[in-house]
Simulated scan of single mutants.
Amino acid sequence: MTYIQIKEGFLELTTIIDLYDRKIFGWSLSNGMSTEETSIITRPIIRMMMVKWSLFR
């Protein structure tokens, strides 16, 4: 997670990167610094990654 300072406060940038392929699977930008908000956004991306990994086993 990366916090970006703006005039009104902070934005939280969350990225999920496949370290093997060095590709970005997804990203989210939110107003709050809440882990709950981030986890809700990243769950579908993690599911997609798990499907990809299961295809290559």
Rank of each mutant, 00 (worst) to 15 (best):
Q5W: 14
M33Y: 09
G9V: 12
S28D: 03
E12F: 03
S28Q: 06
E12Q: 08
R43D: 08
Y3S: 15
L11Y: 08
T38D: 06
L13W: 09
M49P: 00
D18R: 02
F10C: 08
R22M: 09
Y20Q: 09
E37N: 11
M1A: 13
K52H: 12
R22T: 08
S54G: 05
T38K: 13
D21G: 13
I16R: 02
G32R: 14
R43C: 01
G26Y: 03
W53C: 10
W53P: 00
M49T: 02
R43M: 06
G32Y: 09
M50E: 07
I40K: 08
E12N: 11
M49D: 00
S39V: 07
L13F: 12
S34Y: 12
F10P: 01
F25T: 01
R43G: 00
R22Y: 01
K52Y: 10
E36S: 13
K7T: 15
Y3E: 10
I17C: 05
T35I: 13
I40V: 02
E12Y: 04
W27R: 09
E37C: 03
L29Y: 07
I4K: 13
T42D: 02
R22P: 03
R47S: 07
M49W: 06
Y20P: 00
Y20W: 12
T42S: 06
F56P: 01
I41P: 00
S30Y: 03
I24W: 01
I40Y: 08
I46K: 04
D21I: 02
I24K: 03
S30G: 07
T14A: 09
E8R: 12
I41E: 08
L29M: 13
T2K: 07
K52D: 04
T2S: 06
M48K: 11
S30I: 13
G32K: 04
M50I: 11
K52W: 02
I45W: 01
N31R: 15
W27H: 08
S34T: 14
F25E: 01
I24T: 04
E37A: 11
G26K: 03
K23W: 05
F56Q: 10
N31L: 12
Y3K: 15
Q5E: 15
M48S: 13
M48I: 00
F25P: 00
G32N: 15
Q5V: 15
T42Y: 04
S28N: 10
L19C: 11
G32I: 07
I16N: 01
F25A: 02
Y20M: 05
K52M: 07
T14G: 02
L55V: 05
G26V: 01
L55K: 12
T42E: 03
D18Q: 04
D21L: 12
T2F: 09
S39Q: 12
K52A: 08
L11H: 09
L13Q: 06
I45N: 00
F25Q: 03
G9A: 12
G26M: 04
T14F: 04
I24N: 07
R47C: 02
I17P: 00
W27M: 12
M33N: 14
I16A: 07
T14M: 03
R57K: 14
I4N: 07
R57P: 06
P44K: 10
L11T: 09
S54F: 07
Q5T: 14
T35R: 11
E37L: 08
K52Q: 13
I16F: 03
